[in-house]
């Protein structure tokens, strides 16, 4: 058994800088007090020292935004320390749900008609057409097994890596993140095309195999045959 008093704050050095492990079983006020004491007794900084970034790990304790700010305040009192990240073993149900939604593919079998707006947080797999003046929006990428004649907006929350692919690509407008492309009239060809943002932040429409070059990390399947 550990006879000495349990330390609530442990400091560890890593390659990337300091990591402060904060115990999750003591009270928050105790933690703050000990953190302040430990920091002021251990570190006496000189005026010309470089700024050190520290990471926090709060174990199984969930910090509210206010508590996070209180801890940051204590740490920032040491002029040469800055909090780069706060890690935690727990997340709120709300956040977990959002993660899940943003990472899942929503499958939908319908014709998106004029005036209808379909919005999903993650990727969208639409089996059907998007008719003129119909809109599909996705936080991630959009895949349409059908003809895109309306508006498709991928990366709706700002993800500019998102792509739009359609079996028949004749869009009225393509949007990725905050870029808009008023597509020139495309001929109706039965060939899967994809649209993505290039390095100049322009949306380009190209053949599907080009995507691999621009988005090498697009595949989620690891390993395989």
């Amino acid at each position: 058994m550990n006879k000495r008093i349990q330390q609530n704050v442990m400091i560890k050095g890593t390659k990337d800088g300091f990591m402060l492990h904060l115990d999750d079983s003591c009270s928050f006020s105790e933690l703050l007090k000990e953190l302040a004491a430990k920091l002021s007794e251990n570190y006496q900084f000189q005026e010309n020292d470089p700024v050190l970034s520290v990471k926090l790990h709060t174990g199984n304790r969930y910090l509210t935004l206010e508590q996070e700010n209180q801890i940051k305040e204590v740490i920032h009192k040491q002029k040469k320390l800055t909090v780069s990240d706060i890690l935690c073993n727990v997340v709120t149900v709300e956040k977990a749900k959002r993660w899940k939604e943003e990472n899942q593919v929503t499958t939908l079998n319908k014709v998106v008609r004029s005036g209808q707006i379909i919005e999903v947080p993650g990727d969208l797999l639409l089996i059907g057409d998007v008719n003129p003046a119909g809109t599909v929006r996705a936080g991630g990428s959009i895949f349409i097994m059908g003809q895109l004649k309306g508006i498709a907006h991928a990366g709706f929350y700002g993800n500019n890596q998102a792509v739009i692919a359609a079996s028949i690509m004749t869009p009225a407008q393509l949007r990725i993140a905050d870029q808009i492309n008023v597509a020139p009239d495309q001929k109706k060809v039965h060939e899967v095309k994809c649209a993505f943002m290039n390095d100049d932040e322009e949306i380009i429409i190209d053949k599907l195999h080009v995507l691999r070059k621009y988005r090498p990390n697009f595949n989620r399947l690891e390993g395989g045959l």
Partner: peptide, 12 residues
């Protein structure tokens, strides 16, 4: 036809 499309969407 475009207006019909809108109406079908509303009827759905």
């Amino acid at each position: 036809v475009y207006d019909a499309d809108r109406i079908i969407g509303l009827l759905e």
